[in-house]
Amino acid sequence: MSSQQVVALLVALAAIVALANVMGRLATRLAQPAVVGEILAGVLVGPTLFGGAVADLVFPADIRPMLSSLANVGLVFFMFLVGLEFNRDLLRERLGAITVLSLGSMLTPFVLGVLLATALRPDDDRVAFVLYLGTAMAVTAFPVLARMIGDWNLSGSKVGVLALGSAALGDLLAWSMLAVAIATLGVGTSDQWRLLLVLPLALVGFLVVRPLLARIADSRRDMFAVVLIGLLGWSALTEWMGLHFIFGAFLFGLVMPHGTDLRAGVTLRIEQVGKVLLLPVYFVVAGLNVDLSRITWSGFADFGLILLVAVGGKFAGAVLAARLCRLGWRESATLGTLLNTRGLTELVILSIGLQLGLLDRDLYSQLVLMAVLTTMMTGPLVTLLHREREPELVRV
C-alpha cells in the first residue's frame, strides 16, 4: 500500500463520516430516521449524479477494495448487533397475534415477490433468484422500526408491541429464507456437504458457548476481545460452510447470554466503531453500485411494479392478519404501515444479492430506491393515521 493510497483512504474515510453525519442530522430534522439520510449519502456520492465524477475524485478506484473490506467488517458488526438486540420477550407478549401478524405480513409479499421474479426475468430459471426476490419483498427492518417506535412513544402501546414482535419474528424468518436461497446456489457443488455443519454450529453456540461466556462474564473480566474473536470466527465459519458470513455474525449475536453486563459493554464498544465509521463506509460502497441515471422508461415501469408489490403486498398481508386478530381498521392500517419499514436490513439483503450475482446493477438500483421510499413514507403515514390518537392506541 503506497503512501498516496494511505492518504486517499484516510481522506475518503473522513469524507464518509462527515457526509453521513450531515445527512443523518438532516434526515432527523425532516422527521426521518437517520439511516435514511445515511443511505442517501451513499447514493449521492455514487454514479447517479455527475456521471460518477464525485465518486472518482473522492473514492479513487485503487482504494475501493479497501473500502469494501471495511464495509464487510461493518456488516459483521451490524448483524451481530441485530442478533444481540433480538428481544425474545417481545415474542412472549401476545404470542398468538404476533405469529399471525408476522406470517401474514411475510407470506403475502413473498408470494407476490416470487411472481414478480418470473415477470421481471422470465428466462431466469434459478430457484435462488426467485426465493431471493420473494425474501427481499417480505423483509422489515426491525432495528430501524424499533428506533422509530421509540421516538414516537409507541413502545408500550398495543400497536407498538405487536409491530415490534412481528418484525422481530419476521427478521428470523427473513434471514432463514435468505439462507435457503443462498444455499440453493451451491446445489451440485462438491462442497455442499459443509452446509450440514450449520446446525451443529448453532447447537454448540447455544449449549456450550453461551454458558461459557456467561461464566466468564460473571468473573468480571474484560470480555471484549473474547467476544470479538468469537464473532469473527463464527462469521468465517458460516462463510466457509457455504452461507454468507452475515449468518455467523447474526447467530453469534443470538448466542450472547442475557442478564449480564457483558451485553451492554460489548454493544457500546461495537456501536462506537461500527455505527460511526464502518456502517457509513458500507452505505458509500453500496451507493457506488447505485446508478439511477441509467433507469429507462421501461425501468420506471419495472420500478412501479416493484413498489406496488413491496408496499401493497406487505400492507395487505399485515392488515388482513391484523383484522383476523380482531384489531380495528386504524390499528390494522398502522401495523401495515409500520411493517413496510425496510431501511438498512433491506440494503444488506440487496448488497448480498449483488455480490452473489442474483441482481444486476439496474435491478439493484431500483430495489435500493424502493427501500429508501418505503422507509421514508412510514413516518408521514403514521402521523396521518394518528392526528387524533384513539383510546385503543394509548399505552397499555
Rank of each mutant, 00 (worst) to 15 (best):
G160R: 02
G343L: 00
V139F: 05
G205Q: 12
S2C: 04
I246E: 02
A15L: 13
Y132V: 07
A27I: 04
V372L: 10
G37P: 02
L350C: 02
G265E: 11
A27F: 07
A18T: 14
D362Q: 13
V114C: 13
D124E: 10
V111S: 09
G186K: 09
R210Q: 11
R92L: 12
Q272M: 15
L91M: 09
T118Y: 12
D151T: 09
L120P: 06
N21L: 12
Q32Y: 01
T375E: 06
S3P: 10
S166P: 12
D89C: 04
P109T: 06
M370N: 04
L232C: 11
T337C: 12
E239K: 15
R395K: 12
L344W: 01
G165L: 00
R330L: 13
A286Q: 03
G274Y: 09
G51I: 07
I306F: 07
I349R: 04
T341P: 07
G188N: 10
R221S: 14
M106W: 10
A97Q: 13
L57K: 06
D89W: 00
S298K: 11
M241G: 00
L67I: 11
V111P: 05
G328W: 09
P65N: 11
G357M: 09
L10N: 06
L145T: 08
A14P: 02
L212M: 15
L195Y: 04
A146W: 05
D62K: 11
A318I: 10
D123R: 09
R126E: 04
G253I: 05
L262F: 04
G186F: 02
L385D: 01
L384P: 06
L350W: 12
W234L: 12
M23N: 02
A371Y: 01
Y364F: 15
V73K: 04
L107G: 08
I16T: 08
L243W: 05
L10S: 12
A41S: 14
L145W: 07
F252L: 02
A264R: 14
T341R: 08
L115T: 11
A264H: 14
V11L: 14
L95W: 12
L278G: 00
A168I: 06
R215Q: 15
P122D: 01
S105C: 10
C325I: 03
R221L: 15
D222S: 15
F283L: 04
T375P: 03
A34V: 00
L243F: 00
L251E: 03
K314D: 10
L95V: 13
L237F: 13
F50T: 11
G165T: 05
L90E: 10
V284N: 03
L363Q: 09
T341W: 09
A214L: 03
D123E: 15
Q366D: 09
L381Q: 07
D360R: 12
L251N: 06
V198M: 01
L19G: 05
L385K: 06
A15K: 00
S365C: 07
L338H: 07
L308M: 13
G357N: 08
V45R: 03
L13K: 11
G52E: 03
I229M: 14
V130N: 06
I216F: 14
L262H: 05
A225M: 15
W175Y: 07
V35S: 04
S157Y: 07
